[in-house]
Simulated scan of single mutants.
Amino acid sequence: MADGIFTAPGRVNLIGEHTDYCDGFVLPFALPQRATLKVNLRSEARWSIASRGETVHFDLSEPVTGWAAYVAAVIWALRDAGHEVPGADLALISDVPVGAGLSSSAAIECAVLTAFVELAGLDIPLAQRAALAQRAENVYVGVPCGIMDQAASTLSQEGHALFLDCRTLQTEQIPFDLAAQGLSILVIDTRAPHALVDGEYAARRTSCEQAAAQIGVPALRDATLDDLSKLDSSLVPRARHVITENQRVLETVELLRAARVREIGPLMTASHVSLRDDFEVTVPELDIAVEAALAAGAYGARMTGGGFGGCVLALIDEPAAAQVETAVSKAFADNGFAPPVCFPATPGPGAHRVA
């Protein structure tokens, strides 16, 4: 039977947090860290997925849970959309940190999706794949994520950030050549527990939907700061974050188009402050990482991902990486936190076949 090896990346979101499910704007880019999948097709409609010494077998007659659910979800979504999906034995390795807000789940989903589209010859244009992978996670896994993670994993191009309009799904590849300006994005994995399935993410999304309904617009993407006066006081901070965050994305894109990369730093920091104070999705580890990075000379820093743990991005001069990492590590030690893990993030390519 046919086989192949496929890979899809994790992602960081440069700016535009909790805007995707509000029909807003996001600006992620693909990480060098990736999920890589070896696929061997088989004749019967059964599947197995092996990873880290564990193998899970399934035929979709019963729900699959745990980490293997992300594989089963894509197969389910493909079949539910009317596609014939051949049985297969799959083997997965991934160096995308799990639980760090870097979309390790989307990397798995998009590697699986890319593999079956190609090996089974499915007619699913590249631009439509993110929505299918998103539906797999929303409906089968039960995580109410927006489309950003899967779009970044499927559509990203090396050396670029992906400007995505989450309403129209129009995309633009924005040049993001950090090295040419002597800059780097340092990812600081705080290693604080990161969980979105516990209801907090869903609660934020519900608040945004309630705010849009009270204002009388389809989504908060259509709202302005003047509309905040129409809201119950409890919803004002949530809506204010989304409205201002969308504007920060648009301003960041304009600066990057003009190759004024250093100038996006204050927008990154303002995004973090909004996520901390208005959206309330940060934790002490994230806030202290941002503060320490800025004190050590970062142009800007912000949490990335859904929040409640995960990672911080710091825009720095490339030679300052060790200095910033040392400062953050010291701040963590002073506060009794586990040591962070830091690495540079260079925009990489999206999902593709490697063999």
Rank of each mutant, 00 (worst) to 15 (best):
G182K: 04
E325Q: 15
A107Q: 04
C342I: 03
K38C: 02
L231A: 07
L60T: 09
R221M: 02
P218F: 08
D287P: 02
L313Q: 04
D277V: 10
G87Q: 09
T168Q: 12
A127Y: 13
R262D: 10
S271N: 02
S271K: 03
P347N: 11
L92F: 06
L220G: 03
G4Q: 03
A35Q: 04
D317A: 14
I188G: 02
A321G: 12
D226K: 12
A111W: 04
A91W: 12
L14H: 08
A211S: 09
D80R: 14
G159Y: 13
M1S: 13
E251G: 12
D334K: 06
P339Q: 09
I264D: 05
A73C: 01
L31M: 10
C311M: 07
P319N: 08
T65N: 11
Q323L: 12
A345L: 01
E17A: 11
E158M: 12
V143Y: 07
H83N: 07
G142T: 02
A151P: 00
T304L: 01
L186D: 02
R167T: 14
D23T: 08
D189G: 03
G53H: 00
G216L: 10
A115H: 10
V253K: 03
R205D: 01
A131G: 14
T65Y: 07
A111D: 04
G182Y: 01
D149M: 06
R204A: 12
P86E: 12
D3P: 00
P9W: 09
Q134P: 03
E17I: 09
F337Y: 11
T154L: 15
S105T: 04
V98N: 07
A292Y: 11
A69R: 06
A136Y: 09
G348Y: 05
V324K: 11
Y140P: 10
V74K: 10
P86N: 12
A270D: 14
A88K: 13
V242W: 04
L126I: 15
A100L: 05
G305R: 10
